[in-house]
Amino acid sequence: MSIILLSLFLWVFWILAAGNSDLLTLIVGGVAAIFIGILWGKRLYVNSHKAFDIRRWFWALIFLFIFIWEIIKANFDVAYRVLHPKRPLSPGILYVKSQLKSTWGRVFLANAITLTPGTLTIDIQEDLLYIHCIRIKPNELSVLRNKIVARFDRYLIKIFD
């Protein structure tokens, strides 16, 4: 099943990138997509029951909007710190715990954390994420830990778990 999904995805990507729909283009792309799908399909940990669940796609759409909003906030935050003459930084590395179980969910959580205000994922071990944070107030540590994870965790659980 995941072989078919991967092949289909690659084929659609090929058609969009090629920009025309000659018979030859379609056939060459199809053959290549099926070949790569057979080679790599088993290694993608895709659960096809989850992939066809409409509710998960709905939550993914909501997650996308929140994600874009956070990226915009993050950029104005960084721009402020770059342009500020005194560079208001007090960086450090801390760990946070995530509730997510699936591999794909963790990948997306790490990417989302990297692109949001003042945080950069350094390492993932099972459910612990080590995060470099651009501004830490040591007396509000638990609030910060909560804020980093809770923003995305509850949506990603609904999407991937």
């Binding site: 930084l89 007090s90 960086p91 450090g92 590395i93 801390l94 760990y95 080590y130 830490i136 040591p138």
Partner: peptide, 10 residues
């Protein structure tokens, strides 16, 4: 890390 860093749990 930068010498003004606050903490390092890694």
């Amino acid at each position: 890390l930068w010498d003004k860093s606050v903490m390092d749990e890694y």
